[in-house]
């Protein structure tokens, strides 16, 4: 259903909220997984993912016609998760959103092993933790990761390899 709000008029000319809602439903969890992998904390991560979709919504006329708008949103989410100012803004807005789901969503336990794993991943260099987040958390193929990052597939593979080696070294240091 098109947006018809007076204030939303500027967006309404191009946004079909039905299409956007479908896009959101399909790709929100995957985008959220990437941000969770990179940031760790649930509530700000949810906000950061929302910010990425907000950017997509504002530019839906451009985004909707892309071959893979989901990959574009992943890129925006990466940028947002690593931009100090954007992240601050998102964290500041983080709280009200939980109202809507308070009482209606079961607690999501943090498994210690997973928490440790992703905490260690976040100690990797940015280029490495990004490929890990996209490949393993979002379950993107190497080709898709390459598209998101704008680099060759070979670079993604080498970064994944380096990430695994660095991860192993960090784990070894801890023991």
């Amino acid at each position: 259903m098109p947006v018809t709000s007076m204030v939303g008029r500027a967006i309404a000319e191009t946004v079909d909220t039905g299409d956007f809602a479908i896009f959101y439903a399909r790709h929100h969890a995957s985008t959220l997984a990437v941000v969770l992998a990179l940031r760790g904390r649930d509530v700000p991560a949810e906000e950061i993912a929302q910010e990425a979709f907000l950017v997509a919504y504002r530019r839906w006329d451009e985004v909707a016609v892309m071959d893979r708008p989901d990959l574009w949103v992943h890129r925006v989410a990466l940028n947002t998760a690593t931009s100090r100012l954007r992240r601050l803004a998102a964290e500041g807005r983080a709280l009200g959103r939980v109202v809507a789901r308070s009482g209606g969503t079961e607690a999501v336990p943090d498994h210690d092993a997973d928490v440790r794993f992703w905490a260690t991943v976040r100690r990797l260099p940015r280029t490495q933790r990004e490929v890990v987040a996209l490949h393993y958390a979002a379950d993107l193929s190497v080709a898709d990761v390459a598209t998101v990052l704008g680099c060759p597939e070979g670079t993604v593979k080498s970064r994944l390899h380096a990430a695994r080696e660095r991860y192993a070294a960090l784990i070894a240091e801890e023991h």
């Binding site: 909220t17 956007f20 809602a21 896009f23 959101y24 439903a25 929100h28 969890a29 959220l32 969770l36 649930d42 949810e46 929302q50 979709f53 907000l54 919504y57 959103r97 939980v98 809507a100 789901r101 209606g104 969503t105 999501v108």
Partner: peptide
């Protein structure tokens, strides 16, 4: 976590 959200929020 995503179950608590929808596009309307955006």
């Amino acid at each position: 976590l995503a179950r608590g959200h929808d596009a309307d929020e955006v």
